[in-house]
Design a protein around this nucleic acid. Sequence first.
DNA 1: CGTCAAATTGACAAGGCTCAAGTGCCGTGG
DNA 2: CCACGGCACTTGAGCCTTGTCAATTTGACG
Lengths: 265, 265
Amino acid sequence: MSIELGIFDPLIRKLSSGNVLSTRAIEAIRQLPVKIKTVTSRTKVVDEGQNITDCYLLVDGYACRYKFTATGGRQIVSFHMAGDILDIQHVLFDRADHSVKTISEAALAVFPMAALRNLIADHPDVGRALWRDCLVEASIFREWVLNVGRRNAKVRIAHMLCEFAARMEAAGLGSPADFTLPMTQEDIGDATGLTPVHVNRMLRELTEEGSITRDARRIRIADWPRMKRTADFSPAYLHLFDRPPAEDGRSRESDYAENVSALAR
Amino acid sequence: MSIELGIFDPLIRKLSSGNVLSTRAIEAIRQLPVKIKTVTSRTKVVDEGQNITDCYLLVDGYACRYKFTATGGRQIVSFHMAGDILDIQHVLFDRADHSVKTISEAALAVFPMAALRNLIADHPDVGRALWRDCLVEASIFREWVLNVGRRNAKVRIAHMLCEFAARMEAAGLGSPADFTLPMTQEDIGDATGLTPVHVNRMLRELTEEGSITRDARRIRIADWPRMKRTADFSPAYLHLFDRPPAEDGRSRESDYAENVSALAR
DNA sequence: CGTCAAATTGACAAGGCTCAAGTGCCGTGG
DNA sequence: CCACGGCACTTGAGCCTTGTCAATTTGACG
């Protein structure tokens, strides 16, 4: 993939699902004054407490957001992939309430937050699309609270893997049949509130059951229907196939994609 | 409190913090065509999977949002108080991904979601304020993931109580010295991912240490500084005292309240 | 071929859950 | 006014899921 050409395509793709973006707005996004930065794995992008002036769009690779307890426990609160803005909340906040780092080699598009604010002021539909994206993220956070709060270790890990796979497919980065997931077992533990040791035990069980396969430190979902069942996973909360709500009283009849993948079933 | 007069005041108060709302916008909010509904405790307001056409503003009392696992485990993902819109995400979603119910007697202001959409289209500052409010909520969800994922039972419960107290003070509903919290021990368990039995044991410990007092099924925070310490609670993630970010390149010098309460320290 | 991070495995400990049996408070009906 | 019923709260005993600690193996890469 040529980085120069399609930097904003995954973002635009995402913002256009569940929303209608004007071609003017799409053009304005493409005109954002970006610099491309390529970084190694485990590079910190945002630091908790920091004042934010730049906006980071993940163009390639993977990242996560995380927080710490006073005793040093780390909790990953979300994973990110191409097309995700890593610090969108700083459009309206001045200070970071959590940190962000890459979990693989990654390419980032950096531009001034002020440019994004101006773009939103000129194009309300972009603001609406970004707001919607934040609402999807909030829905995912709710599911994570449920996941960590009420599911046991195996289900919890399986659910996290399913969600990541579903989001990757939705982002056009692969199909569940042949996923390889980028995170380490420690990352999985930090995301699910478990120790890496116990993650390892549960991954072994999932492997023995035939739900996943593992080689070269990469996890692959081998049996999606089975995995989905053990994971208690139903992707409605990702709002991937929602229609845009009617703008006002009138209901809007669009040729909205009935393109419901295997994931949604 | 006269319900007829001040229905929207807590909401407007909240939206005006960290944002500048025009007087026109405030007037438009006050003109929303509402019906007041008073309901008993444990009344369902929104049901998962439901199509949403109405918007519910909590005027008085308390509510929570929750989800279930396949095995029937309930997880509360947030608590709400006067001034909170209970289903704001349905401005942009057509389908509820979780349920909402009251946890006390409550008064609700109901109006068509379409009216809110029109209001936002006419007043971008209202949209921005609501977006910001959703971002604060997302930040709270992140903290809950951390809380449930990485803190032990006692700290977890203490943290949840501190957060609720801080939000109540910010909403003008009392000061930490004399809070009474509305939720049952089962609610606390469902919010923290614990069983009610274990919640009871931890509350006893917190009581014996002098952090809280309890009578007539109400919990009161007795020693705020101590409680804050055991809870690992620092309220930055609530974004209560953030300044509004500069709209564009220019930095904005407003007489923004330096009114930092005991909670922030 | 040495180094380092990630993964793996075992033995043991413990935090939190389950089950079970109460107690206390409060509203309701007789 | 009192008895009853229901719900929330309490408490104890034993178990189980997950954590802790420690040692070892594997794989990637210079």
